[in-house]
Design a protein around this nucleic acid. Structure first.
Lengths: 240, 240
DNA sequence: GATGTCTGGTTGTCTAGACATCGATATCAC
DNA sequence: GTGATATCGATGTCTAGACAACCAGACATC
């Protein structure tokens, strides 16, 4: 294998092994064998395998070996958190902006964004459409400096979080979310072309950067279409 | 530091560092300094820090240092997947079983559990209660061999998945979930002491073991109480 | 004052092993 | 045959470094 310079070997090896996975629970070569094949030391191989374990594509069993998981890859099934907008599973969808402006933040938003009460914020309201029509109503707030930076961006195709990450130069690392079921408010029902009092999913999300700073708070209503996702349970999740 | 035998050092070090985290975005000692403090080599320190990065408690910045995350620890806020029953956030809750029996599985359940049509399965129906009353209605199916093994377990205090993991000797690693909003069916509304046509969250979950084998499929209705959780977004999530 | 450069410290990647522990298999004793 | 034991190969943990890439701040230069 010829390694491309500038890219860590363990990532290149992980990519190579991932390509070869059959996804049928088969055993993959031992770490020692992979050392020989890729001509690297065992810690490097282990680092590559760690990536795949983290992705849920393989699992290890001490004393037995390493195996690929037999999870079928339903393309609609995404790992939670893979998208700003986790409802955006339709192949084609776009965001229609209804309003974007700088405003003083209401108290509950100020608390979520850790801003002083009465601060200036930036609000974006819009509706997400698929080829079948509108399916999501979003009200997003962010601190005013962030809003000013993304003000010129075209948000119809990219996502808010992607735009924020680019301007902030920092990874968005956490998503805190509250979900419940609610009957469609009048204005939302109108925009989503639904009868009033249709049951909807209501998400309240706060996106948080790696340093713990909240960067966006959004309230969204989704139509009752089914909303599938996959969670990879990790050991860390179980410690509580 | 005195290391306890039988427990990997990197885990003991991670525990020790975690205890000292202030959670205010402060810089923690450099890896070199930690090597000196804990008298281990740098790869071991890095392995310990990897655990904390994975948990979202710290983040690294190449060339600058390592910092604790300033995420406030709302105790109601749990990492998704931390519990079999993610609604079980109430300090006290218990599960009242309405029925448990071996039955032929309906076609949609057979598909989810990857069983041949018409196979024998094991069904558990119950209601989860908190001190405030019933809040969740569950219909869980599992393959008959698994059901037989857990048949004698007391499920009122433990969770189904914990029971399955113990009997199976394998970790449950994936959760595939579909969520939507629905109006309460009559029988569910009765058992949850709600008016008919109350909007409810409806979850359809498949729990999958590390080898890809489905071990449980559950359909549950939750009352409209708010349902908060935290997601740690990882790099792996973004590739999909 | 603004810009570029050097420097020290940090994390990122990688080597070449060592020993421990676990699990399945084969062998041996009964 | 059956059960205990030995063995072997697998992953798990750990050492003691090396060099690279990156960042911030000090310093010199324009």
């Amino acid at each position: 294998m010829n390694y491309r310079p500038g890219i860590p070997r363990y990532l290149q090896i992980a990519d190579d092994i991932r390509r070869d996975l059959r996804g049928e629970g088969e055993q993959i070569p031992s770490e020692h064998a992979l050392c020989a094949r890729y001509k690297v030391s065992r810690p490097t191989i282990r680092q590559a395998l760690d990536v795949l374990v983290q992705e849920g594509r393989i699992y290890r069993h001490a004393g037995r070996g390493t195996f690929s998981t037999a999870v079928t890859g339903d393309p609609r099934m995404r790992v939670i958190g893979s998208l700003d907008d986790m409802m955006a599973l339709a192949a084609e969808n776009w965001f229609k902006i209804i309003g974007r402006e700088a405003l003083r933040v209401p108290p509950n938003i100020a608390q979520a964004l850790k801003l002083p009460p009465g601060s200036l914020g930036y609000r974006v309201i819009g509706v997400r459409h698929s080829e079948n029509g509108p399916f999501q109503h979003v009200t997003a707030w962010m601190p005013e400096p962030i809003g000013r930076k993304i003000a010129e961006d075209d948000l119809s195709k990219t996502s808010l979080v992607a735009s924020i990450e680019r301007h902030l130069g920092m990874e968005v690392k956490f998503l805190e979310q509250v979900v419940d079921a609610a009957l469609a408010p009048r204005n939302v029902a109108d925009l989503l072309q639904l009868r009033p009092r249709t049951p909807l999913l209501r998400f309240e999300r706060t996106y948080i950067a790696a340093n713990g700073e909240p960067v966006e708070h959004a309230i969204s209503y989704q139509t009752g279409r089914r909303y599938p996702y996959r969670v990879i349970l990790s050991q860390a999740d179980r410690r509580g």
